[in-house]
């Protein structure tokens, strides 16, 4: 498709290549636990003992394979958040959308996810949250619907 604008033509097109990203064995195990059991699992580095969520096949600090799976709770602490006010076709929600970095109890870092079931004015860092699982789960990150404040 092209449109005329004065003497200059603009050409409207797109790049639509269908992608199918392989999650891999490590990630699949994480998602399957979310999907089938509503459980959050992390993985621990045998050397630095850091627990990664989502799991990694290799600890990037120690550069060795991780091995030990660790069952984590579904609760955590909100380390940072933002309220997004603009619409964006890649966000599966209407604005305002709340993103959070959630440090799940027992993990050494935070998980990026949505925060929901909350009055935006009550958001603050350090607040305790719990994972709310989606009713329909397909084996991906959206199997967690969002994290909601623990009353």
């Amino acid at each position: 498709m092209s449109k005329m604008e004065s003497e200059n033509i603009y050409y409207e097109g797109r790049i639509k290549v269908p992608y199918k990203w392989y999650v891999g064995e490590t990630g699949s195990r994480f998602f399957i636990a979310l999907r089938d059991k509503k459980e959050i699992w992390g993985i621990r580095c045998p050397r630095c003992r850091k627990v990664y969520v989502p799991p990694v096949k290799n600890c990037w600090e120690c550069f060795i394979p991780t091995k030990e799976w660790v069952r984590l709770k579904d609760t955590g602490t909100l380390e940072s958040f933002t309220v997004v006010h603009y619409p964006n076709e890649v966000i599966p929600k209407k604005p305002p959308v709340v993103y959070g970095l959630i440090k799940i109890d027992g993990a050494d870092g935070s998980l990026l996810h949505f925060v929901g079931d909350i009055d935006i004015s009550e958001l603050k860092t350090g607040m305790r949250v719990r994972a709310v699982f989606a009713d329909e789960r397909a084996g991906n990150i959206l199997d967690i619907k969002h994290f909601a404040p623990i009353p």
Binding site: Y10, K16, W21, Y22, G24, G27, I32
Partner: peptide
């Protein structure tokens, strides 16, 4: 079971100047 994530209907739109 090895999972995949699909890009679905996602695409990148462009408006190139000729």
């Amino acid at each position: 079971e090895l999972l995949t994530i699909s890009s679905g209907d996602m695409f990148q739109p462009y408006r190139w100047s000729v």
